[in-house]
Amino acid sequence: MTSNPPGHRTDASRVTRHASRAPNRLERKFGDLRAKGEKALIAYIMAGDPSLHETEALVLQLEQSGADIIELGVPFSDPIADGPVIQKAAERALRSGTSLRKILQTVASLRSKTQIPLVLMAYYNTIYALGEAAFCKRAVEAGVDGVIVPDMPPEEAGPLEAVAEQTGLQTIFLLAPTSTPARRTVVARRSRGFLYYVSLTGITGAKLTNLAEVRRNVAKIRRATDVPVAVGFGIATPQDAAQVAGIADGVIVGSAIVRQVGEHQHDPGLPERVGRFVRSLKAAIAPSGASSTA
């Protein structure tokens, strides 16, 4: 994060995998799906959009509609990795008074109703404001399984990674198409729960264009790690989802779902509306799905 000289970087080899720990919800989910020959549908929504009350209803509905893992966006004033759809969602969430602390309360409340794996996508300053150690401890206590920090490069991740490791919170890293082979290896080895491959050079909500490149890079990542690989950014339709499911272990859909939330935010049937779209995504990636390719 800071302008540290290159020599400051964290040594990847110091971080060892915790083979002895009982499998967490993410590992179990990917294991179960693999056994059934299925791929994970990872649905992203912005926590607090339009309110945390609706977020709770949405999580439960999306699970029923076939989502395997839910990614909860933590709203931030300056979301540099996000396109206009998620930016607007963050603005709505902040206007409804959402904060990381309140999101953790919502997760804790959800945990009496569901065991679906929950991953937070949070810009670093929201975590830093709470304190890295306090964040990891409280997140795990609430029932969060993993965290993605889109503005934290692995070179700067050491301290958060260390406390996350102690508490059992999975740190999920992002890999871009332009990453060098050396970086790919480092990130692949350090990612926990799953690895988030970004399908394009760009921001959330852009258009997926180069499927051949995704296929090539996912194959390279698999040679470096056996952690599941999920692909996100630019997956907007059931067709997109089906194509990516032919390549990766998980398909992440964000902006397309968030757009639906935005359009129907005043609709009393909001969760069901969004649920219908998620059901179409899940159907498209099911092994029997007619449009499935490989």
């Binding site: 994060m1 800071t2 004033s77 990381l100 300053n125 975590i127 503005d151």
Partner: peptide, 19 residues
């Protein structure tokens, strides 16, 4: 201190880290 635009530095922000 906080982090904005890839830098850790003095930052005008609220208690939740919003700029």
């Amino acid at each position: 201190p906080g982090v904005l635009h890839g830098t850790m530095t003095y930052l005008l922000q609220d208690d939740d880290g919003q700029v």
